[in-house]
Amino acid sequence: MKELVEKIRKIFSDEKLELLIGYTKGTLPLRSTPGLIESADEADKLIFDFTCCNNLAKYLVDEKKRSGNTHRIGIIAKGCDARAVVQLVMEGQFERENVVIIGVPCKGVIDPSKLRKKLNGKEIIKFKVNRDKITLFGKNFELELNKNELFSDSCLSCRYPNAVQYDYFIGEPSEPLGVRDEYASVDEFEQKLPEKRWTYFEKEYSRCIRCYACRNACPMCYCEECFVDRSTPQWIGKGNDLSDTIIFHIVRVLHTAGRCVDCGACAAACPLNIDIRMLGKRIEKEVIERFGFTPGLDFETEPAMATFKENDKEEFIM
């Protein structure tokens, strides 16, 4: 952590940053909170570890909305955060030269909703890490788990744990966890009968309370006005009617198609442990197979849904 703080302090003054987006210690065990610091002196508050699950690229767009496109902002970036930054630059959300990407090696981050599931309503007061194991201590219980059991599903099959594009990189690049095959769960799910698949989605989305935490945690959801909030005309009902909710989730995934960097921030933000990732992952796979595009890897390739090829496959068109 000391190396991180020292280097950030230097970058802050070298690059003449006006703001740095990183992580600071949270108020609960195994939680961090985004930290937006405005001077190099505050750098010692910064941390980076396996509790840093939020995608910070989200705050770049917020900050631009707040103070225009002229600020010079630094961002601490895991592989997924950096990819989101690249994709946002490609979408013209801000200028490349106004953002300083500071890559950090990611070894997987804890998904708070998985942690809640494991604890079954209880809460912890401290934890101890021993290599791959983590022991959780509550008021009158103790639970030993494999760290992988708490890591976000996105991390378990992540291909880009280190920033692909960056201005600085602090630390030694880490290896992908490689615990799961990237599309195994999608492929397996696809083997089920259509009725079963529909029932699954209905069951998952029926828990949705339309709090929009998934949308708001997502770095790619930056519309001034989301289609669900539009009132002239009002496209979908705002109550928790199931069909309205399902349409919200489908359209959210369609809007992030070819842009989603699978950081898992949506799933981690969901207070009701809804499987938000499944549909998005299937779309990600389609975008790769059909258009050969993976978002956020470089500053040259045109994003898949903003371009076309004359010979794109069209087997589904009569």
Binding site: G35, L36, K58, Y59, I209, C211, Y212, A213, A217
Partner: peptide, 13 residues
Amino acid sequence: SLRCLGCAVCTYS
């Protein structure tokens, strides 16, 4: 508020 995502988790829960 700089950190706040503006979702309704707090209000709905």
